[in-house]
């Protein structure tokens, strides 16, 4: 079976699924982030003014969105992919197909939609006069690829385990919420007291939050070691996730 075309077909289905029955269809991928951007801007500029310490620090809204939006890609792709095998039980029971494709398509669709929103946000922020470096979009794409590999690895493992232990999807939502606040997304790492600052680096997303800000806002920087560790983590997640998936795959039908 031509795997690539099958994957594309499933991604296409997945994308159409998410906007099925809506008038504006794919436009929601752009409308949703812009509305969110407007709401956050209003709240954090006018109601609850937030500032990032430092003389040449960026505004809070670009600072927040540079990390929050990639985080949404990770969180959403994990939440959606974890149940994808379970949801496609009827298809799996009737047609022989490489089941990884289902996870791959689901994660890809989440990232595609998210990335479209990300570009829209960056352009709008730049247009509104924020100090956003559009040249940073190139490294941002590379970061997205790395983040995608990392989340696909986790998604493969989670989707396979979810078939056996249905608690995973429930637990995942809570774990993601905790991880979100344990990464420097809403705050700068400088605001964290010296004592806890080191712990932040245990969160895999901390690197991405820092790296996206470094690329687009020139705020802080990440050294080569951290990039290498993140790349290694992504490859390891992919390898282990795929292995777990392969191992459990022949038994899905028994437990679905």
């Amino acid at each position: 079976m031509p795997l690539a075309s099958l994957t594309l077909r499933f991604i296409d289905r997945e994308l159409r699924n998410r906007f099925a029955g809506s008038f504006t269809g794919g436009l929601w991928a752009l409308i949703a982030p812009l509305i969110q951007l407007a709401v956050y801007s209003f709240v954090f500029v006018h109601i609850l003014p937030a500032r990032i310490p430092g003389a040449d620090a960026p505004g809070y809204v670009p600072f927040l969105f540079a990390a929050l939006w990639p985080w949404n890609a990770l969180a959403e792709s994990l939440v959606r992919s974890t149940t994808v095998i379970q949801e496609n039980a009827s298809l799996i029971g009737k047609i022989a197909l490489p089941r990884e494709v289902l996870v791959l398509a689901s994660a890809s669709a989440s990232f595609i939609i998210n990335f479209a929103g990300f570009v829209a946000i960056v352009l709008v922020l730049a247009f509104a006069g924020n100090d956003v470096h559009l040249a940073g979009l190139a490294p941002a794409v590379a970061l997205y690829v790395l983040l995608f590999a990392f989340s696909l690895g986790l998604a493969l493992a989670f989707a396979a385990i979810q078939v056996f232990v249905r608690d995973l999807a429930q637990a995942l939502a809570q774990i993601l919420m905790i991880l979100m606040f344990c990464a420097p997304i809403f705050y700068d790492r400088l605001l964290v007291s010296e004592r806890f600052r080191g712990w932040l680096d245990l969160n895999p997303f901390t690197f991405y939050a820092d790296a996206f800000r470094a690329a687009l806002l020139h705020h802080g920087d990440v050294d080569a070691t951290r990039i290498a560790i993140a790349a290694l983590a992504a490859v390891a997640a992919l390898a282990i996730g795929h292995r777990i998936f392969r191992r459990l795959d022949p038994h899905f039908e028994d437990f679905l």
Binding site: F164, R166, H251
Partner: peptide, 10 residues
């Protein structure tokens, strides 16, 4: 049993 099966398979 599901959890046990998972552990066995892994």
């Amino acid at each position: 049993d599901r959890l046990r099966a998972l552990a066995r398979l892994l």
